[in-house]
């Protein structure tokens, strides 16, 4: 089971990076979501697949009756899921407003590539920039 999960994780990561590299920012967000999922699976797998019992202590008991799934990675994943969710939503809204500003979400467009204003362009001669 583990090796299959590892392969699933790897393929999801590949897909996520491929989407991120596409230069289409919406697909970047898709990649982000996918990568988040992949990482969660990775942590889960790294915490080892154990017996299918959830880590819950039965009523009237003070300790686990039977070996259960590893609880710690689950807690970490829960944190990671929520943080990932917050980041994704933020990125989404950021893109939404960026689109208002640039009218495009194609990161290969000049509007995205230009990092400085015209007057800030690198100017190696030390001469004044002509406007």
């Amino acid at each position: 089971m583990e090796s299959f999960l590892a392969i699933v994780v790897g393929l999801m990561v590949s897909a996520a990076f491929f989407l991120m590299l596409s230069g289409v920012l919406i697909r970047f967000v898709f990649g982000l979501i996918l990568m988040g999922n992949a990482v969660n699976l990775l942590i889960f797998t790294a915490g080892r697949l154990a017996p299918v019992n959830p880590p819950l202590i039965g009523a009237k008991q003070t300790l686990l009756a039977a070996p259960a799934a590893n609880a710690l990675p689950q807690a970490l994943i829960l944190t990671a899921i929520v943080i990932g969710f917050a980041m994704t939503i933020f990125m989404l809204i950021l893109l939404f407003r960026t689109h208002d500003q640039t009218r495009t979400l194609d990161a290969d467009q000049d509007r995205f590539i230009l990092e400085t204003d015209k007057t800030d362009l690198p100017d190696i001669t030390g001469q004044k920039v002509q406007e």
Binding site: L32, L42, I43, L94, E115
Partner: peptide, 25 residues
């Protein structure tokens, strides 16, 4: 300029993804 912020956010998010992967491993 939000386009610059997009780059900042995108690359930093990538780094946190690397980070949590490394922590998991």
């Amino acid at each position: 300029r939000l386009t610059n912020a997009v780059k900042y956010v995108a690359l930093n998010l990538l780094s946190t993804l690397f980070l949590i992967t490394a922590i998991g491993l």
